[in-house]
């Protein structure tokens, strides 16, 4: 039995998918969601095999939903927009259905999903593809999953980000949010005009910087507007000087 979740903000759009799925005996629809938050929650709680996912939805779009899922089910995008096809390929979607679609086309997508479940992508390949991910624009917000719920942190409200083993701690307005990601990866995604890697373990939002204090030749400390003190490495200081 394959467990699926249908995510679309339109009732009718979900009902088309549901109807097509009803023809397949081995498919069970375990949930239907009308927005990104619900989808993330449902995927965490029900761990489906296949996700039929719209792109444009309230709160979180389809790509943000994928980012927050772990482990990731086989995803079939269902959308009226053809412009996301390349991006869908980059996040390893198994298929991309353009609304409206035929029953044959739907069955084909379902077969692709079955094939992916039977033979998942090799881990090496996914890692390679992730390294080559094209990022058109800097990240405008960071999404942090907290249990089944999602916290959205707009990038301008981030104070600084700290590396903690396999996680990063995003500090924002006195709160600390843990996210499973490498600091080096995050550093590349954020707006380089605002976020500076001041240290091996710290990324600073330069809007928050109050002043720099120098203790010795290579011992500097960044004092933030709220009084927080962060270490600044020599290369971090070079990067800061470049931008200031």
């Amino acid at each position: 039995m394959l467990r699926t979740i249908i995510v679309d903000d339109e009732d009718l759009a979900r009902s088309v998918v549901r109807e097509h799925l009803a023809a397949h005996r081995d498919i069970q629809v375990v949930a239907e969601c009308s927005n990104g938050f619900e989808a993330v929650k449902a995927v965490a709680e029900l761990s489906p095999d296949i996700l039929f996912l719209d792109v444009q939805m309230p709160k979180l779009d389809g790509f943000e939903v994928i980012e927050l899922m772990d482990p990731k089910p086989a995803v079939v995008f269902v959308t009226a927009y053809d412009s996301y096809a390349l991006k869908a390929f980059e996040v390893h979607a198994v298929d991309y259905l353009l609304k409206p679609f035929s029953g044959e086309r739907f069955t084909e997508a379902l077969e692709h999903a079955r094939a992916r479940i039977a033979a998942p992508l090799p881990a090496g390949l996914t890692a390679l593809m992730e390294d080559h991910r094209v990022h058109e624009a800097p990240l405008q917000r960071i999404l942090v999953k907290n249990g089944a719920s999602v916290v959205v942190i707009p990038s301008e409200s981030i104070d600084y980000i700290e590396a903690e083993d396999d996680y990063v701690a995003v500090h924002s307005g006195g709160k600390r949010h843990l996210k499973q990601e490498r600091l080096s990866e995050l550093a590349q995604l954020l707006d380089p005009a605002r976020f500076i890697r001041i240290h091996r373990s710290f990324i600073l939002n330069i809007d928050r910087l109050a002043r720099l204090e120098t203790y010795a030749k290579d011992s500097r400390v960044a004092i933030l507007k709220d009084g927080t003190r962060l270490p600044v490495s020599r290369s971090g200081h070079d990067r800061l000087r470049e931008i200031l």
């Binding site: 339109e10 009718l12 759009a13 009902s15 088309v16 109807e19 009226a80 927009y81 353009l98 609304k99 409206p100």
Partner: peptide, 17 residues
């Protein structure tokens, strides 16, 4: 045009429902 595609999709859903 996406308005048209989405509308056609709705019609496609309604034809059976």
């Amino acid at each position: 045009p996406h308005f048209l595609f989405n509308s056609l999709n709705s019609i496609s859903a309604l034809t059976t429902v």
